[in-house]
Amino acid sequence: MGKKSDSFQCQSGFSSPACMASEVAPGYFDPLAVDPAQARDVARWRKSERIRLREARKQVATAARDDTAKALMAGLRDVLRHRGDGSGKLTVAFYWPIKDEPDLRPLMQELFDSGVDIALPLVETRAAPLVFRRWTRDTRMVRGHWNIPVPPPEAPVVHPDVVLAPLVGWDGGGFRLGYGGGYFDRTLAALSPKPFAIGIGMQSARLPTIYPQPHDIALDLILTEDGVQVESEARDV
């Protein structure tokens, strides 16, 4: 994080060392981010929270992480059962698990076998919306951006009906704290029609707020191992 001046030391008792939460108080916070100093404070706070939440996730025992993944897959099965037009013609964009994220690949394979089209996101252009390419059990994965396995260039590009977004943190407004690249927000803003966006994360990663900025897009639903936590008004896929 680097050396902090006295004015940036957290005095409010929050867990993050450079949290800026006392400066980003409800009476001061402007969601339109007109004040550039406030936007910088929010960015610093988010960086600190990412570090804290990722470290906490790293400490979760393997058995507990497996139980979390199983609970998430059970909840996701139920959610997806009510999406689409009943014909089973649904395209769901999963994600390849990294950085101690719950592993949902068994459900990805199960849904593929049941006739659901599966896609995976990849970065084709930096600082641009994600591209979704079709995945099958026979797909020969290649290393993509950040060394994440992705479908090869010859895999068809698809427009997902449902997009799963991994959460580092989340809040009751349906806003997502991700890894800081802005790719999912950029993608949701660009896709038309907009897919149904489901945040996947841990209950312990809930925050009072992420201090949403103008570029942040609320998810349609947030799912944790404890079930659905946030749900917008239902939209047809």
Rank of each mutant, 00 (worst) to 15 (best):
P121H: 08
P102H: 01
R50V: 05
A37D: 12
P97D: 01
P97C: 01
P102Y: 00
D66I: 04
V79D: 09
L107E: 06
I51Y: 07
E110Q: 15
D85A: 06
R40V: 13
E101C: 14
A64Q: 10
D66M: 04
K70G: 06
P97H: 02
G86S: 02
L122G: 08
P106S: 11
R81P: 10
L76K: 04
R65G: 04
P121M: 10
L72M: 08
K58G: 12
A64F: 02
R83K: 10
D117M: 03
S114Q: 13
R57V: 08
P102L: 07
G75K: 02
A71K: 13
V92R: 12
E110Y: 11
E55N: 14
F112Y: 11
T62F: 12
E101L: 10
D41E: 15
S87C: 02
K58Q: 06
A71W: 08
K47H: 14
A39K: 13
Q59V: 07
L104A: 07
A71F: 04
T62C: 11
A61L: 03
R46N: 15
H82A: 03
P106R: 07
E49N: 08
Y95M: 03
A119M: 00
R40N: 13
V92W: 11
W96K: 01
R46M: 13
P97E: 01
A119Y: 01
T91W: 12
A74E: 05
L90I: 06
A69W: 00
S48G: 13
E101N: 14
L80D: 05
L72D: 05
A37P: 09
D113Q: 14
E101K: 06
V116A: 10
K58W: 05
T68P: 00
R54P: 10
D103M: 05
F112R: 08
D117T: 10
V92F: 08
T62P: 15
M73V: 08
R83T: 02
V79W: 04
R77A: 12
D78A: 06
F94N: 09
L80S: 12
A37V: 15
R105F: 06
G84P: 05
T91A: 13
R57Q: 12
T91R: 07
L53D: 01
V60C: 03
S48F: 03
R46G: 13
L53E: 09
R44S: 10
G115R: 15
